[in-house]
Write a protein that binds this DNA or RNA. Structure first.
Lengths: 342, 342
DNA sequence: TTTTAGCACTCTCGTTATTAGAGTGCTAAA
DNA sequence: TTTAGCACTCTAATAACGAGAGTGCTAAAA
């Protein structure tokens, strides 16, 4: 079943290539003339018949050309795809853009999403870098009004949480400084369980702050990927499948709503992907709603310390080689970035 | 030109209402039967002819029904629209959702965008609350590696900036604490110009930090609305005008790219809007690319202190009454929110 | 044994013709 | 001032049709 001859592989590749380009069913004559094959259309027809039998191609109707099945794409990605790399030029441009906005996290996440979308011509997603083990680094308390405190919690890895807390009684900035110093020292490098266990006297103020710190840390730890930044939806949207089919549009809507995406990220990121990039084609039988879409995901960051996810998604008829190389490049770029900063 | 009789206004309203519902040109017979008018179709025809003459309606072709012109929508929004309010129920639900995620800014911005999109059934945008006068509040320096410093700058209003700075030489946490205390005291409540003017001795470390603080503050002040959060693009995308017309899709793409949007926000927010909500219909003659779209914007926050922008956008054929009431409600909700926190 | 030329057959899609129906504007009567 | 009536216009749906692209199969060629 899976042992195709070189010629069959070649033909499958060409069909996929041409179909990605044109979104039209590919016939034998057309293939031969388009690519100047040293074969007659009849021979190609025979091979096509075999590939159809084997489940890699299908016909929308008798007497139409062939289009790849999910299985066909999968075989292609798994066995036939040649590994494209980005041009040195493109890579330099991208790196440069990053180094310009290196400081602000939210900034470069959006930048990453935008680059992914523009380069791949499909839609992109990026989740924030997320600490895998959440440990306390520093606490800062700043009085704003009478009873209001702006609390800033810095975690190991540099993630920052801020909240405005309201106390029962007014507190002076001096008290706040003392409190934050004391707690910072006590909590240093501990995770939330260890903080919970700390024995000792706590004032009412300290107690409130401690509770807040613990709840923030817990929340951070539980949440796999809170926010998901999307970009380039309109790229996908002007593809013929999405213009024509209501179903495809519904799939896109589902993705925009994030819930499916989050499930998908957390599930698929578990099985460690082949060479860093994971390709989900047509929902992989599990997600029926995504029959017409493919998703390419990669982790970035430092395994075990901080990691995030990024990727692209678009019609199942997408340019895998190109998309994968972009995702891979950006994932390694961001990883370097994160490593440099943390 | 602008003084329509009550009957003409009524007919214009009905046509707009029906057109928004069906996206089809509206004929006289249909209007009479659909709304059980106490008029003959001939009379309605006469009025339609007048409204067409006056520029409020147009015919896609002779012997077709009428559709509203931009001018027609504008007259409707300005004079005829009845002010709908959200149901008490809906309002409670929304408030509730907000109070749940009240702490995290980025969190409730996304929430706001999502609520706007879901309620209005079109696309939405939200910009972060942005201080109008940028003043220094507090500085925190935390050592991460040898030469790397995590710097956290808190501005009046509570906005937080963080960066990782790299020094030439290693610095101890102790030195950093001293530096941050000294600078915090010196810079307190000053804007970037005043900070620049401060006389006195600065160590090399202090100098670097000072430069960074100034550049962050400058940047914050110049940037009207850095990030723009979008949601609900797919709502718009399944409207017939966007399915059918390439031009409309291009407009949406342009919006997703943000640059046009930012220009639009900064320009339109200047002229203080009528009762807080500004409605841009069909690009208002200025933005040709947006001929088929309408945008509803409102500020939120505390004027003069921190403000952001939120709104919805969709096909020019959108349900203005409903959308405006949602935008207005969310703007006041977020304003309360911001007021409570700052 | 493999490849290919040839051919009959199938199905889509674009074109053209036709028509039903919805809509209009105008005139004249109510 | 309103409306019934009517001739006229234009679209959009439907049907009929043929070109074209594609297929699978058979038999001959390599």
């Amino acid at each position: 079943m899976d042992n195709l001859t070189t010629r069959q592989q070649r033909i499958l590749s060409l069909i996929i290539h041409e179909y990605i380009r044109t979104a039209e069913p590919i016939g034998s004559n057309r293939l031969v003339s388009e690519y100047n094959l040293d074969l007659s259309s009849a021979t190609v027809r025979n091979e096509m018949a075999y590939l159809t039998e084997a489940g890699f191609l299908r016909q929308p109707h008798t007497s139409a050309g062939r289009i790849p099945t999910e299985e066909g794409y999968r075989y292609f990605v798994g066995n036939l795809m040649r590994n494209t790399t980005l041009s040195e030029d493109a890579r330099r441009t991208i790196s440069h853009q990053f180094y310009q906005s290196r400081n602000d996290i939210s900034n470069w996440m959006h930048l990453a999403a935008s680059i992914l979308a523009n380069q791949s011509k499909v839609a992109s997603l990026v989740t924030p870098p997320h600490p895998e083990q959440v440990r306390f680094k520093h606490l800062e308390l700043i009085s704003t009004h009478n009873t209001q405190i702006l609390s800033v919690l810095v975690l190991e890895g540099g993630e920052i949480h801020q909240s405005v807390l309201t106390m029962n009684l007014p507190v002076s900035q001096e008290d706040l400084s003392i409190t934050s110093n004391r707690l910072s020292e006590l909590f240093l490098a501990k995770n939330h369980i260890e903080i919970e266990k700390i024995q000792g006297e706590f004032s009412e103020l300290e107690h409130s702050i401690k509770d807040w710190v613990i709840s923030e840390m817990k929340q951070t730890e539980s949440l796999t990927a809170g926010e998901v930044i999307l970009d380039g939806l309109t790229n996908v949207l002007s593809e013929p499948e999405f213009v024509e089919s209501d179903e495809a549009r519904r799939a896109l809507k589902l993705i925009e709503e994030r819930t499916l995406l989050q499930e998908l990220i957390s599930r698929s990121i578990l099985k460690e992907p082949t060479n860093g990039v994971q390709v989900l084609i047509g929902g992989e039988g599990t997600w029926n709603e995504l029959k017409q879409m493919s998703i390419i995901l990669a982790k970035y960051g430092q395994p075990g310390v901080v990691t995030g996810t990024l990727g692209v998604f678009g019609p199942i008829r997408m340019s895998y080689g190109h998309s994968i190389s972009i995702v891979r490049f950006l994932s390694s770029l961001l990883s370097d970035f994160v490593a440099e900063q943390w």
